[in-house]
Design a protein around this nucleic acid. Sequence first.
DNA 1: GTCAATGGTTTTGTATACAAAAATACGCTT
DNA 2: AAGCGTATTTTTGTATACAAAACCATTGAC
Lengths: 221, 221
Amino acid sequence: MERRTADSLRDGIEQLIVSGEFGNGERLDEVRLAARFGVSRTPLREAFQMLAASGLVELIPRRGAFVRLPDLVAMFEMFEVMAELEAMCGRLAARRVTPAMLADIKAAAAACEAALEEGDSDRYYRENGVFHHLLYAASGNGFLAEEAERLHRRLKPFRRMQLRVRGRMRQSMAEHRDILQAIEDGDGARAADALRGHVAIQGERFNDLMASYDIAQRRAG
Amino acid sequence: MERRTADSLRDGIEQLIVSGEFGNGERLDEVRLAARFGVSRTPLREAFQMLAASGLVELIPRRGAFVRLPDLVAMFEMFEVMAELEAMCGRLAARRVTPAMLADIKAAAAACEAALEEGDSDRYYRENGVFHHLLYAASGNGFLAEEAERLHRRLKPFRRMQLRVRGRMRQSMAEHRDILQAIEDGDGARAADALRGHVAIQGERFNDLMASYDIAQRRAG
DNA sequence: GTCAATGGTTTTGTATACAAAAATACGCTT
DNA sequence: AAGCGTATTTTTGTATACAAAACCATTGAC
């Protein structure tokens, strides 16, 4: 709260929203927030613009800025799109990946494996992020990689809560192996399917997510 | 240029960029632009934020706002992603579309057909937008629909220039018929393939685009 | 001749002041 | 007492003023 660049303001407000201090639909008061962060309304309004662009708040002209947290349906929809974007990355990567990139992806998968053996879920979470990041890049489509990264970032809090489910880490790793093998074989369709299954929320995973979401909401509300 | 809401400002600047008055990499001078639009720097800077969110300008702290036009490669990549998003919409719509929505889509296709018969390319362009908009909604995934809309909007200027190619309008209409039929048959895979082909830039279409892009660039530079 | 330092100028970032619109409260009528 | 119209108060949107950083050009040192 001491620094006050445009970005840090955005992060600060984002934090307040995600932590549940501001509930869904609540109006963000410009003067109160400005006072709280020790800035004037001008930079605060610029931060609002950024948050609106990322979808976390809605800006209604002459009305104000309102918190817009995704509900369960919206979250499910976002994962559905994320699954398709990653599937596309996999499909393209299977055809376009260079040997050097493939080596990097293998290394990331190995790091995941190491984290799994250690039972270090924080590290697994981190290495998993690297794995996916490299996969996006391997698609050879820079724009796709950016978009995938953007959505990945937006889903971050929810993904984390999903990984806490018992046994999910081990299953996730098995799926990584499938994905990697399909890309190595140059089998785009199989890579795409594996990634769709890896990312999408389906079957019992849906129930798991619903349960953890309920808990998180209760804590926030 | 007489009205001056936040959105109209953004559109006005966007127009200046797309029309080529501001070349790629050029800095957008706050005071000059403010004077030109008859507003102060404050709303202008908010418009900059919006343009940065949509990727048309890059905001470098303490340096200013710079035009960032996609090059040919980036544009190709964007269309590749757009094709996949639309394919996904089609795949889902084939399963989820309601009779009422299907009727709306049919009506939009009919309007396109009418525009084609009249040879009214502006109207075709407009009705074509409606057709795609309805398709996004028919996916039953609100988030997907929003993302598709967003990218569609971003590609607007380039799509328009693509449609100017001789005979493209008639071919586009034929593809619409295929898409509609596949959705009506509930054949998700066929709808997806038809849409991928409809949107993606491939084969000679790539050369067409390259040519018109060259011309546009030359006019701008 | 090249490079670095320094002063002046431009330009961004932010605070504040003011105008217009929305929200709210109050009183009036029925 | 309920509903409507109006006055008051918030709150947003915008202009302007000012501070700080970046830019630029001139000058001086090596």
